[in-house]
Nucleic acid binder design. Structure first.
Lengths: 219, 219
DNA sequence: CAAATTTGTTAGAATAGTCTAACAAAATAT
DNA sequence: ATATTTTGTTAGACTATTCTAACAAATTTG
């Protein structure tokens, strides 16, 4: 069984390799707040266990086994976040830190019970998909708000950044998952967008924000 | 902040010193499944942090600070057990292992929310008192069933053994907290007792079992 | 392309928590 | 009160995870 430390490396590798399917040692070290030699030696350890593939001076690639292990940890993380929000009345900005600890608990029944109690949710409070028990992840292929055009209507389906700061910003603007937006205009100058939603007739969202809001466009 | 290992030593010391207020190195080592040298060196570490007092060849005594720290971990353990039983529909025999892990989570709000959701319970699913937020424990001073006399009526209020095996035994006999017992007779031969409860007209309980059932006698 | 920068590696050391072997003190039992 | 047993201690070693310093490879830049 992987240690908590190893689990954290797997999770970091998984998250970093979303795009290329591989991650550099320096990104890994950065993500985990450890030195490069530390990341380097842990990668060797993971490789010995068949969890990743690695050659000197090459990026690290998770094996199928490693991907599955990582996905199952992420499953526990996201189920926990959802449970905290749905069943324990936490705000979506409060749950990451707690889930970061709970995800390392070894108690299959505990997480299955959460899952049942919530009616088997497919996404977490930030719209990220919850991997299934086999570690498979349903891809959502959402667009970011930046890609939408004036005149379109869309609903916020997920976030590409779930930091407490960004969530606090969204809270302050009454933006949440499910919020329906009408895109009024887009500044070609700074890529900021003016939108309407709920009670708000005209709100301006910076490019930074638009990029982080993942939407489903109404047909 | 104490490591998980240190927390486990504190908890073990707390449980072992219930009677004398002190614990031997060998009992501590035994309780934790480590060697005596290991327990010995950890005791020195805890002492340096002001969590216990210790002199060579003498038993270990928790300081007030150490007692409080231990009680707060036990609080998290027992709140978790109660939450699992009351809110997540686990059996009382399933919760110890999970609580053993959850008790190390650092998230005050998580445990406070559990506490609130349950209406601030004072005992865990096995009848053991839940320490308050200051680490104070309300003593229940219960008698064991062995101390009761034929003719008396009593209610099971707690257990002095919460092992899965004992709990399975109690489940198989439909005995639980709150079960009201009429004591019919006691064998002076083997100290076993014959009792009536629920649908059962006559059930025989061995001395071992009677000692582990903590009761409140009806006036 | 050569120089500079970034990235990655090796070597060596530190800390936490654990062990076994050997010995010493305390407690128990003749 | 001595011998035996139990309990406790010290010394030394091992693994996991981390670090810094020094160097090497790869990449980027002028």
């Amino acid at each position: 069984m992987a240690s908590i430390t190893e689990e954290n490396y797997l999770k970091a590798l998984f998250n970093l390799s979303n795009n290329q399917g591989e991650a550099s040692i320096s990104d890994l070290a950065n993500q985990l707040g450890v030195s490069m030699p530390t990341a380097n030696s842990m990668v060797k350890t993971l490789q010995k266990q068949g969890l990743c593939r690695y050659e000197k001076y090459k990026p690290v690639v998770l094996t199928e086994q490693g991907k599955k292990a990582a996905a199952l940890i992420i499953r526990k993380h996201r189920l926990t976040e959802m449970f905290l929000v749905n069943k324990m009345d936490f705000g979506w900005e409060e749950v990451h830190e707690i889930a970061e600890q709970v995800e390392h608990i070894h108690a299959p029944k505990f997480f299955e019970r959460m899952d049942e109690m919530m009616g088997f949710p497919t996404v977490d409070p930030h719209g990220s998909p919850i991997p299934d028990k086999q570690g498979r992840i349903q891809e959502l292929h959402l667009k970011s708000l930046s890609e939408a055009a004036p005149g379109q209507e869309a609903v916020i389906a997920a976030l590409s950044d779930s930091s407490a700061e960004f969530l606090a910003y969204l809270n302050s603007r009454q933006l949440s998952l499910g919020t329906e937006l009408k895109i009024l205009s887009k500044e070609s100058f700074d890529q900021s967008m003016t939108v309407a939603y709920g009670e708000k007739e005209r709100e301006s969202l910076s490019q930074k924000v638009c990029e982080k809001l993942l939407i489903r466009i109404f047909d």
